[in-house]
C-alpha cells in the first residue's frame, strides 16, 4: 500500500474534493487507500459516494474524537499512518489540512509539499509542481524517494476525471487510541460572519472591489450591481478588507477565498498576483481601472479604462433595461 489519502470528513464538499485526490492517486498507483476518521462509522454516512471508487477504505474511529480539535485530528491521522506505512500521504489543501499536514510532517519527521497544483511522472520519479511567490512562479520539487512524503493538493487544480469503479473495495477498521489529555487546545464553535450570505464559492457572478473604491460606500453600489447579476454577490481585495471597509470574510485571493464564477468584475483592483491566485479560474474577468498600465489588464478578458464611480451607476441602469 503506497498511497494514503487522508480525508477532511468535516468538509461539506468532502465528496467532491476527495474525488480529486482519488483522481490523482489513480494516476500514480492504483493500490491506494482512503482514510476516514470520525467518532463512529454512522457519522460518515454523508461520504457514501466514495464507497466504490477506491480499492481500499480505512475507517478509524473513537467516540472521544471531537472533530473541532486539531490535536486529536493530528493524533488520529498519525496512528493511521503508523498502522499503514504509506510512501505518499495525500490531503486536499484547506485551512484545516494545511495545519494538520505540517504538524504530521513534524511529528513523523518527514517532508511536506504544500498546495501542489500538478504532478508529473518523469524518469520514473514523481515531480510535484506548486505555485510560489504568490503565484508568479512555480517550483518543481522531487523527494529523495526514500522518506515518506506528505503532499497537500490545491483544491480544484486536478479535476476528477480519472475515477475508476472498484466493485469490491476492502474496508479496514482501526480503533484509535485517544485520551482527553491529548486535546491541548480547546476550540469553541465557529461563529459564522454572515450566515445568510450567498457562499462566494457558489456564486455565478462576483463583483469584487479594491482600494480604488476609496471607502466603504463603494460596496453599496457594487452590491446593487451584484443584485441584478445572475446569482451574484460581492467580494473584496485584501487592501479593501485591511482598510476596514468590508469584513475580511469577503477577501478573495491567496490568503482569502478561491472562486471561479462565470463572471468576475475586478473594480479598482490593481491585479497583484496574490489577489489573482484566488480568481484566475473565473470564466470571464472584467476589469475597470483608471490606470491603463494596471496589471489587472494582463489577466482580464474585458478591460475598461475609467472611473468606477462614474461607470457603475450607468452600467446598472443599462443592464436593468437589457434584461
Amino acid at each position: 500500500m503506497n498511497i494514503l489519502i487522508l480525508v477532511n470528513t468535516t468538509d461539506p464538499e468532502a465528496n467532491s474534493t476527495t474525488r480529486e485526490a482519488i483522481s490523482v492517486a489513480n494516476k500514480i498507483d492504483n493500490q491506494y487507500s482512503i482514510a476516514l476518521i470520525s467518532k463512529s462509522e454512522e457519522t460518515l454516512s454523508h461520504l457514501q459516494e466514495l464507497n466504490d471508487i477506491c480499492p481500499n477504505k480505512i475507517i478509524a474511529t473513537n467516540p472521544l474524537l471531537n472533530t473541532q480539535s486539531l490535536d486529536l485530528w493530528v493524533e488520529s491521522f498519525k496512528q493511521v499512518i503508523k498502522e499503514t506505512n504509506p510512501k505518499i500521504i495525500l490531503m486536499v489543501a484547506d485551512v484545516l489540512t494545511r495545519e494538520i499536514s505540517a504538524r504530521l510532517a513534524a511529528q513523523l519527521n518527514i517532508p511536506l509539499i504544500q498546495e501542489s497544483s500538478e504532478i508529473k511522472i518523469e524518469n520514473n520519479s514523481l515531480k510535484f509542481i506548486r505555485p510560489i511567490f504568490g503565484g508568479i512562479a512555480s517550483a518543481t520539487i522531487q523527494s529523495d524517494g526514500i522518506s515518506p512524503l506528505i503532499v497537500t493538493l490545491q483544491k480544484g487544480a486536478f479535476g476528477s476525471s480519472n475515477i475508476q469503479k472498484y466493485p469490491n473495495p476492502t474496508t479496514r477498521y482501526i480503533q484509535l487510541e485517544l485520551k482527553t489529555e491529548m486535546e491541548k487546545v480547546k476550540y469553541e464553535k465557529l461563529s459564522p460572519t454572515s450566515p445568510s450570505r450567498l457562499p462566494m464559492e457558489k456564486a455565478s457572478s462576483i463583483v469584487c472591489g479594491g482600494r480604488g473604491l476609496g471607502g466603504p460606500e463603494g460596496f453599496d453600489l457594487l452590491s446593487q450591481l451584484a443584485n441584478i447579476l445572475d446569482n451574484g454577490t460581492i467580494g473584496a481585495s485584501r487592501a479593501a478588507c485591511d482598510a476596514g471597509w468590508i469584513d475580511h470574510s469577503y477577501q478573495i485571493g491567496l490568503t482569502g477565498r478561491t472562486v471561479s464564477p462565470k463572471l468576475y468584475f475586478a473594480i479598482g483592483i490593481s491585479g497583484a498576483s496574490q489577489h489573482m491566485s484566488g480568481c484566475t479560474k473565473s470564466q470571464t474577468i472584467v476589469a475597470i481601472n483608471t490606470d491603463p498600465s494596471a496589471l489587472i489588464f494582463n489577466e482580464a478578458d474585458i478591460g475598461l479604462i475609467g472611473d468606477w464611480e462614474k461607470i457603475i451607476p450607468i452600467l446598472i441602469e443599462k443592464i436593468k433595461t437589457t434584461k
Binding site: A137, T140, Q142, S143, L149
Partner: peptide
C-alpha cells in the same frame, strides 16, 4: 534535505 527543488519557472 529530503526534498529537492529541481527548477523554478515564472508563470
Amino acid at each position: 534535505t529530503k526534498t529537492e527543488t529541481i527548477r523554478i519557472n515564472f508563470q
